[in-house]
Design a protein around this nucleic acid. Structure first.
Length: 799
RNA sequence: GCCCAAGUGGCGGAAUAGGUAGACGCACAGGACUUAAAAUCCUGCGAGUGUAAUAACUCGUGCCGGUUCAAGUCCGGCCUUGGGCACCA
């Protein structure tokens, strides 16, 4: 059979009949399946894309046959640095580079027969789309969720450009290898930290996999603790520290402020002034990567002043050190060297006293090389002595509040979202700066703010966005006073467009709003969202934050609009390494489709292993899947003229297995179940009935849609499968009439017996005891008890 | 360092309200068909003891221990690999 011809034939059929176009009929049951829309790189579709698109496609096709109105859309995340780089290198406009890549991707997707609703396709770079991304930013600004702040960025002094954290990995510029420095820049920020708690509790309204939820939880990084006030001795000043272990206050023997802490200058003694200033200057030269480098020896400088430990009333020295981060907590800590590895290291180096305040039972006195335990019973702690960790924390909190020197405090690691990029190829931020009126959003009716259609997208020398050079574009009028003003020249990050695209798919052609409330209320939410594990933390968090803001402004119907999130394992090269050109282990799906057919590739990608685990490519295994398809084809030659099912139980068992497996990510066992059924069909002495054949073709259709449609047509089994309904299983017909179970003596298998299903215990016992080998093992022994679980096992315990 | 996931034949992997470990596929071996090869079909395939061949038996799901009539599955303690976060107080 010529696969190319039949694949093309059915792909055209589906297109012509709009088989996969989601209906606008809101009386139908909705089902929304989403795969992460790809970044259209020049490399084309990866076999890893094929794996997840096929998996979701199988669900989509099954759900349609089950009567759902399925939305399975596709689009393009087309802004971003790679397209910009490619364009610079090849002297073409990024939009043209993107266009070429997309047409390649789309062609590849179509040859694989994915049932995407192409009528809803869009690019994040379409002005019709990014108009709404900009509009939403303005809403964020109006609701006080967007603000400008000065933050350090990675700056390459040689390339004179701002680098992303990825491009600055290891503290060196990826391109020219020169040292990256920190440069202060005023950037647009979104107040994501304000949503930390909501993003945490919102997880309860989702069905994300536990590991996905955990990724979100870890990123948000909630910690419960206390803020404690420390007076500076001899100054009318105090500072606040954040700690999760206020119970160890009696062991606090020094304090550390971040070098940027605003109190540093005020409380530094004259004798220490020079050294402190030098240390601070050194710190500003270093970038964040260097400062947070692993295993770096702790450094710091004594300020020459002391704080009062409020528990002991003793004077303890104040240091500055870069191991304290200015952005977390209060930028100041109390150090408990006896029970914190970092504080311990620092105290050793600077000969600061170490006071143990926690003790484990049976702890031996040894020379201190490491900090003591972080848990145990309190000692040397006055009113906390004898208490465990939890009791002591509660008691300390009460004491702090009573003394009015501290309070309970929740802290989050998650920071605000830096939203500006000094790039050309992104959504322009629709803000205008006027000398008189300050920053204001442009008039919404003037949206979209288009990227200028010029070839001026090379990086500038001073780190400004390339847009800054296009003066015609930059110069505008103030929306408030009408005077001359300038546009913001930074663009949005790549994450922006992908934070709400799933809403646009619900109503992609709307030009009155980003999506109508009506459409969003109908589709409700993404039922299944599939993507790589690498996006489960940040992308998902940004998207949820975005939706929560829209919800709070009354613009979307639900606070969480993604229900289930699943993530797939990677497809590795046959050598078990990540596919890459340099390793020469890349498999191009086009080659596989043209040599083996799309259906074979689809079956293989689902059969290759546990969907959530990585799997190495094996062309041999692929050939096995081709054999499977060919045997399905040959099965047609065994058709007899009978009707009904030859073996009802096998049929119902298989329907159940495939139906359940497809929605629980067990694609490999769904395929295996079909192989088992095929093996059985091939053994029938009188051939198979039309109903048998139609059934196996229907169950295989979501996975291998082309060949099954073709065989269905050739053998006149009925209407095209995509227009028929999914079979329903009867649970009472899923268990064989005859069941073989094991018989154990003292837990060791000694025989197996066959009986009818749900047989009475007494009969099973009789059958078991009748076995010769069982008799052999129990003879001369006393039967203590007999365990009989019908349909499972018989175990005779003897002594 | 912390958090998470996973360790099962030559290989990818099945099997968890605890109940016959190794489904299904690949590779391999033997046979059929063929002048021959490929393709296809049939048979075998965890390790070992044993037998003419059966039968039967022992061991076996990373390691050590435990709970149980029964453990790949549950509990305690390790080891290894992969992934994520990383001086977050």
């Amino acid at each position: 059979m010529n696969y190319k011809t039949i694949e093309k034939k059915w792909q055209e059929y589906w297109q012509k009949n709009k088989t996969f176009v989601a209906k606008d009929d809101h009386t139908l049951k909705p089902y929304y399946i989403l795969v992460e829309f790809p970044y259209p790189s020049g490399n084309g579709l990866h076999v890893g894309h094929v794996r997840s698109y096929t998996a979701q496609d199988a669900i989509a096709r099954m759900k349609r046959m089950q009567g759902y109105n399925v939305l399975y859309p596709m689009g393009w995340d087309a802004f971003g640095a790679p397209a910009e780089q490619y364009a610079i290198k090849n002297h073409i406009h990024p939009k043209d580079a993107v266009k070429e890549n997309i047409s390649n991707f789309k062609k590849q997707m179509q040859t694989l027969g994915f049932s995407f609703d192409w009528s809803r396709e869009f690019l994040t770079t379409d002005p019709d789309y990014y108009k709404w991304t900009q509009w939403q930013f303005i809403q964020f600004y109006k609701h006080n969720m967007a603000y400008k702040d000065t933050v350090p960025v990675n700056w390459c002094p040689t390339c004179k450009t701002v680098l992303s954290n990825e491009d600055a990995a290891g503290g060196v510029c990826e391109r020219c290898k020169s040292k990256v420095v920190q440069k202060e820049k005023s950037q647009w920020m979104l107040k994501m930290s304000e949503y930390a708690e909501d993003l945490l509790t919102g997880l309860e309204d989702t069905n994300f996999a536990d590991k996905v939820k955990l990724g979100q939880i870890n990123w948000i990084g909630k910690s419960l603790g206390a803020e404690i006030n420390f007076q500076v001795d001899g100054f009318n000043e105090s500072f606040t520290v954040f700690t999760t272990r206020c119970d160890t206050l009696f062991g606090a023997t020094y304090c550390v402020l971040a070098p940027e802490h605003q109190l540093v200058a005020k409380i530094t003694s004259d004798t220490q002034k020079e050294e402190v200033e030098k240390y601070i200057a050194d710190c500003t030269l270093k970038n964040e990567l260097e400062r947070t480098e692993l295993n770096k020896e702790k450094t710091g400088v004594f300020l020459g002043s002391y704080a009062i430990n409020p528990a002991t009333n003793k004077k303890i020295p104040i240091y500055i050190s870069d191991y304290v981060l200015s952005k977390y907590g209060t930028g100041a800590i109390m150090a408990v060297p006896a029970h914190d590895e970092r504080d311990f290291e620092f105290a050793k180096k600077y000969n600061i006293p170490i006071i143990q305040v926690l003790k484990k039972e049976n702890e031996k006195e040894t020379e201190l090389e490491h900090a003591y335990t972080e848990d145990g019973i309190h000692i040397n702690s006055d009113f906390l002595n004898g208490l465990n960790k939890e009791e002591a924390i509660n008691k300390t909190l009460a004491w702090l509040e009573e003394q009015k020197i501290g309070t309970k405090k929740v802290n989050y690691k998650m920071r605000d979202w830096i939203f500006s990029r000094q790039r050309f190829w992104g959504e322009p931020i629709p803000m205008i700066y006027c000398e008189k009126c300050g920053w204001n959003p442009m008039d919404e009716k003037d949206l979209p703010l288009l990227l200028p259609d010029v070839a001026e997208y090379l990086p500038t020398d001073n780190g400004e966005s390339p847009l800054a050079k296009i003066t015609d574009w930059v110069n505008t009028t103030c929306p408030i006073c009408g005077g001359s003003a300038k546009r913001e020249t930074d663009t949005m990050p790549n994450w922006a467009g992908s934070s709400w695209y799933f809403l646009r798919f619900m109503d992609p052609h709307n030009d009155e709003s980003f999506a109508s409330m009506d459409a969003m209320q109908y589709w409700q939410k993404v039922n299944w969202y599939n993507g790589g594990m690498e996006h489960t933390a940040r992308h998902l968090l940004y998207a949820r934050f975005w939706v929560q803001m829209l919800y709070n402004f009354g613009l979307v119907p639900k606070k969480e609009m993604i229900w289930t999130r699943v993530s797939h394992g990677m497809v590795l090269g046959s050598n078990n390494e990540k596919m890459s050109k340099s390793k020469g282990n890349v498999i191009n799906p086009d080659d596989i489709v043209s040599e083996f057919g799309a259906d074979t590739l689809r079956v293989y990608e689902l059969f290759m292993g546990d969907y959530e685990q990585d799997a190495a490519w094996s062309t041999d295994s692929l050939k096995g899947c081709k054999r499977f398809i060919e045997r399905i084809e040959k099965l047609g030659l065994k058709l007899n003229d009978k009707s009904g099912y030859t073996n009802e139980i096998s049929i119902h068992k298989t329907i159940k297995k495939v139906t359940n497996d497809l929605v629980s990510l067990k694609y490999n066992t769904a395929v295996a179940a079909l192989m088992i059924l095929l093996n059985e069909f091939e053994k029938y002495p009188d051939g198979i009935t039309k109903d048998d054949y139609l059934l196996i073709l229907t169950l295989l259709n979501p996975i291998a849609p082309h060949i099954t449609e073709e065989l269905n047509e050739i053998y006149h089994l009925g209407a095209p499968l995509c227009e028929t309904t999914w079979p329903i299983f009867d649970d009472s017909k899923c268990l064989d009439e005859e069941i073989t179970i094991g018989v154990q003596v003292n837990g060791k298998l000694r025989a197996s017996i066959t009986s009818k299903k749900d047989e009475e215990k007494a009969i099973l016992e009789k059958l078991a005891l009748a076995e010769e080998n069982v008799q052999k093992h129990i003879s001369g022994k006393e039967i203590v008890k007999t365990i009989i679980i019908p349909n499972k096992i018989v175990n005779i315990v003897v002594k």
